[in-house]
Design a protein around this nucleic acid. Structure first.
Lengths: 193, 193, 193, 193
DNA sequence: TATGAATGAGAATTCATTCAT
DNA sequence: CATGAATGAATTCTCATTCAT
C-alpha cells in the first residue's frame, strides 16, 4: 500500500471511529481530546490528518456515503417499480436499519455544521452531495416518464423533493408523515389513464 | 407603565438590539459580552432579563413574529387570489424587503440553534410556530377547495409545504427555484376543468 | 416601640428567616438575592440591616443563643445531678430535638465562616461565646468539687471539653462516640471513695 | 523517568508551589489564575493535573504528610518515654519549627474546605487521615499499658484526643493550653502506684 | 510519524454592592 | 425606609492548536 493511500485510509478510520461520539453528544459538544481518545490516537495526530474539527465530520459524511452509495445502487438496480426505487432513495430519511439510523444522525450533525458555519467549501460540498442524489432521482423519474407511468411535469418536482425531506427531517417529523407525503406526491404525479 | 411591563419591554428591546449582531456573526460566534455591548448594558444585566444565550434568540424570534404576524394578516385579508395569499404567507422565504430579509436570517440562526440543542423547550417552541403558520395555510387551502379552485387532495400537501420551504432555505436555494416550486405545485393542485 | 428597637427586631427577624437556607445550602453557596427572597424583602434592604453576608450569620448565631440560653439555664436549674447538668450543657452537640439540630447546623456554618475569614471581630465573637459556656461548665464542675463528687483536678479539663466537642463535631463523629467520651471522662474525674 | 511518574511529580510540584499562597490568602480567596502564576504555568495546565481547586489542597495535604510521616516515624522510634512520643505525635499542633507551622496552616485550610464542602470524597479522605494517626496513638498507648505505665482505661481516650487537638486548633488556643491539657490527661491516665 | 504537555484567550455565568426612585 | 435594576469585576473551566520530543 502506498504511503498516501495509507494516510487516506487512516483518515477514514479516524473519522469513522468518531461516529458514535458525534451521535451521542453532537458536533458542538465534542472536543478534539475526546475525538483523539475514541480514535485511540494522540491529540496532535488528529492534526496530521485533519485541518480542523469540521474537516472530520465532512470526512465522516463522505465515508458514510461511500458505504451507502453502493448499497443504494444495488437496491435501485434490483428494484422493479418506481415506487420501490424512490423508497430506496429516501431510505436515509426513513429506514429503521441501525446503520442507516446512524447515517441519518450524522447527516443531522452535518446539517447543523453547515448552518453554523456556511463557508464556501461547506456550501460546495453540500451542493455536490445534493446534486448527486438529485441526479439519481432524475434518472428514476425520467425512466417513469418514458415508461408512461409518470406525468411529464413530474420532472419539475425533483429539486423540491430533497428539500422537503430535509425540511421534514429538521423539524423532526415522524416517519409516517414523510411516507404519506411521498405517497400523495406519487399519486399526484402518476399518469392518469 | 407597570414594573412588569417595563421589564418585558426592556427584554424585547435588548433582544431586538442584538438582531444585527446575530445576522452578521451568527449565534454561535457571539459572546454575551458582545451582546451586552450592542445592547448598551452591562454583561450582568443580560441575566436579569434572560436565563441564557438561547433565551435571547427565542425572544428575538418572538419579537420578529410580533411585528410580522399583523402585517401578514393584513396582507392576507387584502389578497384576492389564493396564489397571492400563498405568496404572502411564504414571504418570509422570498421577500426582498430589508425587514423580511432580516427576519429570514434570524430564522436561519434560530434553525441552527434548534439543530444544535434540541431541548424539549426548543422543540415545543418550534412546533408551536410551525403549527401557527400551518393553520393559516390550511385556511387558505380550504377556502380554495370550497371555491372549487383547488383539488380536495391539496389539503394533504399542507404539512409538506413548510418543510419544503425550510429545506430549500437551509440548502440556500435561490428565490426563483422556490417560486418555481410553488407555481408547479399550484398547477398540480389546481382543479382541472 | 422605639425606632431603634424596631430596627433591631427586624434585623433579628431577617436573620432568623435565613436559617433554613443556611442549613440547606451552606453559607458559601448562598447569595444575597436568595437571602432577600426568603426574608421577603428587597436585596437593597439587606444592607439597611447588615453590613455584609457574614454579619447575617453572626446575628443568626446570636438569635439562636438568645433562644437557647434561657432554656439551657432552666434545664440546668432543674437538674439534680452533675451528670445531668453536663448532658444539658452539651445538648447542642447531642440533642435530636429539631430546634437543637438546627442550632447545631448553624453552628457548623458559623465555624466554617470563622475558619475562612478569621477577622479580629470574628475571633472576638467566637472567644466570647466560648467563654460564656466555659463559665457555665466551670460552675457545674466547681459545684461537683464542693459536693465531693469530683476530683479537684477536674477543673483543669474545663478548657478542653468544649474543644473536644468541637473536634468531634467537625470530624462528624456520631453521637454515641461523644457520649462515650463524656462518660469515660466523668468516670476518670469522679472522686474515688 | 516514566511519563506517568513525571506527571505525578509535576502534580506534587505544582501543589507544593501553592503552599505559601494558601497560607497567606486562604483557600477561598485564591483564584486559579493566582495558583497558575505562582506555579509558573498556564491556567489551563492546572487542569491537566487537577480536576478542580480542591483537588490541589488535597494533593498538598498529601505531600506534606509524605514529608511529615517519615520524620514522625523516626522521631517516635528514637523516643524513649510515652510522654515524648505523644509530644512528637502532636507536633503538628505544637511545633514552632517553620516547616511544621506551614503544615499546620495548610491543615487549617484543609479543615475549612472540609467544612465548606463535605463531599463524600472529602469525608473519606479526612477519615482515613484521622485513622492513620489514631492508630499510631493507639500503638503508643497500648505500649504504655503493657509497660504498666498507663491505666487500661487510657485506651478509651484515644478517639477523643485528636478531636480535642482539632478543637483547640480551630478555636486558636495557644500552645501552652494544649500542652497543659496533654499533661493533665497524662497524669490522669497514669497508673497510680 | 506520533505524541501529549502546555497554553492563554475566551467562554458563560455569578454576585455583592450601589443608588436613583 | 425600601427597593430592585444595573453592574463589571471576578470566577472557574474549556479547548483548539502548537511544538518539542
Amino acid at each position: 500500500m502506498s504511503k498516501q493511500l495509507k494516510k487516506i485510509n487512516k483518515r477514514k478510520a479516524i473519522a469513522k471511529s468518531t461516529c458514535d461520539l458525534f451521535i451521542t453528544k453532537g458536533f458542538v459538544n465534542i472536543s478534539i481530546s475526546e475525538i483523539a481518545k475514541v480514535a485511540g490516537i494522540g491529540k496532535g495526530t488528529i492534526y496530521e490528518y485533519f485541518t480542523n474539527k469540521e474537516d472530520i465530520i465532512f470526512e465522516l459524511m463522505s465515508c458514510l456515503q461511500e458505504d451507502y452509495d453502493p448499497k443504494l445502487k444495488e437496491s435501485l438496480q434490483n428494484s422493479q417499480s418506481i415506487n420501490e426505487k424512490i423508497k430506496y432513495l429516501f431510505s436515509l430519511y426513513l429506514s429503521d436499519h441501525p446503520t442507516v439510523k446512524t447515517q441519518r444522525q450524522i447527516y443531522k450533525e452535518f446539517l447543523a455544521v453547515t448552518l453554523n458555519n456556511p463557508s464556501a467549501a461547506i456550501i460546495e460540498y453540500q451542493n455536490n452531495m445534493m446534486e448527486k442524489y438529485t441526479n439519481i432521482l432524475l434518472e428514476i423519474i425520467q425512466e417513469g416518464i418514458e415508461n408512461n407511468e409518470l406525468k411529464e411535469s413530474a420532472v419539475h418536482f425533483i429539486p423540491s423533493i430533497f428539500a422537503t425531506m430535509d425540511g421534514f427531517f429538521i423539524s423532526r417529523k415522524p416517519k409516517d408523515i414523510i411516507i404519506e407525503y411521498i405517497d400523495n406526491l406519487s399519486n399526484l404525479l402518476k399518469k392518469e389513464e
